[in-house]
Design a protein around this nucleic acid. Structure first.
Length: 722
DNA sequence: AGGTCCGCTATTTTT
DNA sequence: TAGCGGACCT
């Protein structure tokens, strides 16, 4: 069989990775170096050249998007959809295994996945049940703590330090929450992984089964794995399995949520892999790459990598120093208009920022200028309140013991069941160790509720039971439709919200019915004996859907630097490069976090294909207050010779608005902004900023070689060269 | 039971 | 500035 098409379009390093034959492989894949291509070709290579059965391959990614893309491209390359090939997210794959072995891990067949919001509400419920002070044990923090323990593989019984009463209480919350989940057949995201790890760890037969099956394990974005994910991969791969690990330590930006870059070096230690570096970049100009290389060079403890390109130097990076965030936004939108005016497309432009709040100004200006835009990171479809409400009804049909679902809709729409009544039901559930639904039924039967409340609860229970009977043989679409109709959520929202808002909710509910109608159950779910309804519920939790609808439109892209990872745009703006904002204050304060901010900067820069603008503002509103900032240290780390100062900082007089001290152009040192100066040690540079007077006068110079420096004039002995 | 007002807080996000 | 949650009022 001719397999040249698998290698023809690859460079040497990519080829080395794809064909690697010596045990395990670590591919250090720089930004834009063709990482996905290598993964996809590797899979095809194993199947077509080494005749590995698709059944023997496991490919793991982080996001559904990445998994979907990989699956599509493998299918395309092989010309067929390889049957039996497991490509999926960590959570998707674990979910699948747990469904297959639910009985062995002590889960009911009807177990439900708890999304973050459900989990949060349940933890809050638990803390109240335990009658603890929510100030001392905030649900948000407890959620983080519990998830962190799980990500580290810890059960309540594995946690020590119980000498501290507060810590002991936290563990008690974890235990209570976990017991609750067990009783109700609920599994949170971290639990999906932890259960699977425990299954493989404690059940030798299962472990052997999978280890024998998966001769090859491929893992994407390895720098983002946490301890549990690494443990999972090791268990699945076993002694015999070959690991093909792709990652980039320089793009590790999720340490704050448990990702361990150290897994990359641990992998080298544990598996002694062949290491291949993909350093040739097919995305950005040489100028952008060199600047990015130089910035990331300020980090220690790197595996080491230098991006290069055969392409041209391209344009310099433009650095814009704005007085205010408003001016920054005006400037950026004006440059986008230039781009469009020159025939560029709006969707080729991306504005990247550190925190979501920054999008507002850009949105205002884009709106004013009539340019379409799309903000990433809004609420996702299955996270919308009305959708979650409808889904809660559906969940109750599927599993009456789903307490979070019961709590969510027991009084939505309002049917006169208040906190007191619900608390009576909870008490009953606690003392009888049964679900809320069962407790409510018992109370009705025992007439243990006030007449009014009792009637209301009874009608709710009847509604659920009746819906269940009516839809027993109905399709998923018809069931959903019946649920939405019976629940009367549209009416409920219409009665209490602004018309346009309620209308959107009703449209979403219609959309939900359509989604259920067109839902195609994955073949493997069907084989596992799963009802379509169960599949649908699981998928809603695991893939919450698109962030925002208008993705098809040709519009300017607004997103955080984090969401930009993995994407590329011809025209990129990185805005708000100010100390305190980027790097964020919190990251500056905590040791070790700064290098992650720098990696974020590196990620941002390497999104740009042709043209990169970097900007900062001296003043902006933050939490309703105007604050003054210095440029980010990352700006100083940009090599001066690659930068074009679009507007060197002007003497203040003209734009002075009375905010703080401005550089004084009338000082007698004879230097001027934009002027060229020479320095004994640093060489030649451009004056970028002047500050203070007399002995205190300081000057910021962008030196061609040494980069940007602040110098005190009294000591620096600069020479005027212009 | 349900609605309103006040005060507190405030990176980054996927599953 | 804005959203959320809790306290308070009807």
């Amino acid at each position: 069989m001719d397999v040249s098409h698998l290698l023809d379009e690859l460079n040497d390093a990519q080829r080395e990775a794809v064909t690697g034959d010596a045990g395990h492989l670590l591919v250090l894949a720089g930004a834009g170096s063709g990482k996905t291509r290598v993964l996809v070709h590797r899979i095809a290579w194993l199947i077509q050249v080494h005749h590995v059965s698709p059944m023997g391959l496991l490919a793991v990614t982080f996001t559904n998007k990445a998994a979907g893309e990989m699956r599509a491209r493998v299918g395309e390359l092989l010309g067929i959809r390889p049957e039996g090939l497991w490509i999926g997210t960590f959570h998707g794959i674990c979910h699948r295994m747990l469904r297959m072995h639910a009985d062995e891990v002590g889960l009911p067949d009807t177990f439900q996945i708890l999304d973050s919001d459900d989990q949060y509400r349940l933890i809050r419920r638990v803390i109240r049940d335990m009658e603890l002070d929510e100030g001392q044990f905030p649900a948000r923090a407890m959620q983080g703590l519990i998830n962190h323990h799980k990500d580290e593989g810890r059960r309540p019984e594995n946690i020590e330090h119980l000498d501290n009463p507060h810590a002991a209480q936290q563990v008690a919350i974890y235990r209570y929450y976990q017991d609750y989940c067990e009783r109700s057949g609920l599994v949170d995201f971290a639990e999906l992984l932890l259960r699977t790890v425990e299954l493989l760890r404690d059940n030798p037969a299962r472990r052997r089964h999978y280890q024998e099956r998966f001769g090859h394990t491929l893992i994407d974005e390895f720098q983002d794995t946490n301890r549990l994910q690494y443990a999972l991969v090791r268990l699945l791969s076993g002694e015999q399995g070959r690991m093909f690990v792709v990652g980039d330590d320089d793009q590790s930006i999720y340490g704050w949520r448990g990702a361990r870059v150290e897994n990359v070096s641990d992998f080298v230690r544990d598996f002694d892999p062949q290491v291949v570096r993909l350093e040739q970049n097919y995305r950005s100009t040489a100028t952008i790459l060199e600047a990015a290389n130089r910035v990331i060079d300020h980090n220690d403890d790197r595996m080491g990598k230098n991006l290069w390109t055969e392409g041209e130097a391209g344009e310099p990076i433009r650095l814009f120093a704005a007085w205010s965030a408003e001016e920054e936004a005006d400037y950026i939108i004006a440059r986008i208009q230039d781009w469009i005016g020159q025939g560029g497309s709006p969707s080729e432009a991306a504005i990247l920022y550190r925190s979501n709040a920054q999008s507002r100004l850009f949105e205002q200006v884009l709106l004013r200028e009539g340019i379409d835009y799309r903000v990433y990171g809004g609420q996702r479809f299955f996270e919308r309140a009305e959708i979650k409400d409808a889904m809660a009804y559906l969940r109750l049909l599927h599993n009456r013991n789903d307490d979070p679902a019961f709590e969510r809709v027991i009084n939505v729409p309002a049917r006169g069941i208040g906190e007191r009544t619900v608390e009576r039901v909870r008490e009953q559930a606690r003392s009888r160790k049964i679900s809320l639904f069962a407790a409510a039924s018992e109370l009705i039967a025992a007439q243990g509720l006030p007449a009014r409340a009792g009637k209301a609860i009874e009608s709710f229970i009847e509604k659920i039971n009746m819906l269940d009977e009516q839809t027993a043989n109905a399709s998923l679409g018809d069931t959903m439709s019946a649920v939405v109709r019976a629940a009367q959520l549209g009416e409920w929202y219409r009665g209490r919200e602004a018309p346009d808002r309620a209308e959107t909710r009703e449209e979403n509910l219609e959309e939900l019915v359509r989604a259920a109608e067109s839902f195609e159950q994955p073949a493997e779910d069907e084989q596992a004996g799963l009802a379509p309804l169960a599949s649908f519920l699981a998928q809603a939790a695991l893939e919450a859907g698109e962030h925002q609808g208008q993705s098809w439109q040709d519009c300017v892209q607004l997103m955080t630097l984090h969401s930009a990872k993995g994407l590329e745009f011809p025209l990129v703006f990185m805005a708000g490069l100010e100390e305190g904002l980027f790097p964020h204050q919190k990251s500056v304060e905590e040791p070790g976090r700064l290098s992650e901010e720098r990696r974020l900067c590196y990620v941002g820069m390497t999104r740009a294909m042709q043209r990169l603008y970097i900007s900062f503002a001296e003043s902006r509103y933050l939490h309703g207050q105007r604050i003054l900032s210095r440029p980010s240290r990352f700006v100083d780390e940009l090599p001066a010779h690659l930068i074009e100062q679009v507007r060197p900082r002007q003497p203040a007089a003209a734009t002075q608005t009375g905010l703080g001290a401005r550089p004084d152009s009338s000082a007698d040192h004879g230097l001027r902004l934009g002027g060229t100066v020479g320095h004994q040690r640093f060489g030649i540079g451009t004056v970028v900023s002047l500050e203070g007077q007399g002995d205190n006068a300081r000057v910021q110079v962008n030196f061609e070689q040494a980069g940007s420096k602040w110098l005190v004039l009294a000591y620096a002995s600069l020479e005027r060269l212009d």
